[in-house]
């Protein structure tokens, strides 16, 4: 399918792509699948074989994106999504609808780029449906400016049908995090698997709220929620990881760690609920300062305290 790229958007496109080209050198020549959006302007969209990417802009300026992956296909190069706001002030609302056909395999890499933030809000509402046997990975990487105000509200509902596998990786490490409010609900059916990982570095007055709920509806379904949040300065973290075991032999685990420095405040609420006596859900949550034994070990290797902390935090957020 032909690429959609308006000449007048070329400059914006190149500016945005520059932030990520080191990750994806192939991105610049337009061979990659997916779309690039600045505010609500679609600068580029491409539907390679087996995938249909469609979009419309609604009256309230929200952008509806619809992605269909045909059944029975395997997409080897990642489907790239880039949602940026280059302006200092702006609001972006995206309704994303992704459907992955039966037995298909696909990986999405989504960059959210707000480098010049003064007052930015990014609202994402996702509906994701994996048909039986499908496998999908979704990597969301945030690149934020060093100051200003960012409101980030990613929410969504994911349905993982029988035998399917959904893996999601969310990382927000560079720049200020802002006011983050993540709310995801995932339903897993027979023999299906989900893995959710979030890694966030909060600084200054960042507020990080994450609520992830996994419903193990099917028999032999499995779910893991893993969260790593590092909080510095006056930042605040409130993390809820919830797994509800409903199916026979369903298994779930919540693994939440928050490392707190300075005057930061952290709250963690792992909720595990076995509605079915044959289901097993476990959790571990740790809040606190940096692990002393790790710190001592690295200092005994000749690192200063600051260097050791950087290495340990870097590892947790890697």
């Amino acid at each position: 399918m032909k690429d959609v790229m308006d000449e007048k958007y070329k400059k914006e496109y190149e500016t945005l792509i520059r932030y990520i080209e080191s990750d994806y050198p192939e991105s610049l020549d337009g061979r990659f699948a997916g779309m690039v959006v600045n505010s609500n302007r679609v600068l580029f969209a491409n539907s390679p074989e087996g995938i249909k990417v469609k979009w419309i802009i609604l009256e309230d300026n929200a952008l509806n994106v619809n992605i269909r992956v045909d059944p029975g296909i395997r997409i080897d190069t990642p489907v790239h999504l880039c949602f940026g706001i280059l302006n200092k002030i702006g609001k972006q609302k995206i309704n994303m609808d992704i459907e992955v056909g039966k037995d298909s395999v696909v990986k999405f890499v989504s960059h959210c780029i707000f480098p010049n933030s003064v007052d930015i809000s990014h609202l994402m509402d996702a509906r994701i449906h994996l048909h039986p046997g499908a496998r999908m990975e979704y990597h969301e990487v945030h690149i934020h400016g060093k100051s200003g105000h960012i409101t980030l509200v990613p929410s969504g509902k994911v349905r993982v049908d029988a035998g399917a596998e959904f893996k999601s990786y969310f990382t927000l490490k560079s720049g200020i995090a802002g006011d983050v409010d993540i709310d995801y609900e995932i339903s897993i059916y027979d023999d299906a698997v989900c893995f959710l990982e979030s890694k966030i570095h909060g600084r200054e007055k960042d507020k990080i709220k994450i609520k992830e709920s996994v419903f193990l509806k099917g028999n032999n379904s499995k779910g893991i929620i893993k969260t790593r949040v590092v909080l510095r300065d006056y930042s605040f973290g409130d993390i809820t990881g919830e797994i509800i075991g409903e199916g026979d032999n369903s298994k779930g685990h919540v693994d939440c760690m928050e490392v707190v420095f300075d005057n930061a405040v952290a709250k963690a609420s792992p909720i595990v609920f076995a509605k079915n006596p044959k289901s097993k859900v476990t959790h571990e949550a740790a809040i606190g300062s940096i692990d002393r034994k790790q710190l001592i070990t690295l200092m005994a290797r000749g690192l200063s305290e600051e260097e050791a902390i950087d290495i340990i935090v870097g590892g947790l957020l890697r």
């Binding site: 200092m299 005994a300 290797r301």
Partner: peptide, 30 residues
């Protein structure tokens, strides 16, 4: 501890620490 290590005094711990996100290569290079 750090300055003693810089002076050339170190230890291999009886129960060494574990690290998430750090590979054996990273640790040995450090």
């Amino acid at each position: 501890i750090y300055n003693r290590a810089k002076m050339g005094l170190t230890i291999a711990f009886q129960e060494p620490a574990r690290f998430e996100g750090l590979t054996v290569k990273d640790y040995l290079l450090i």
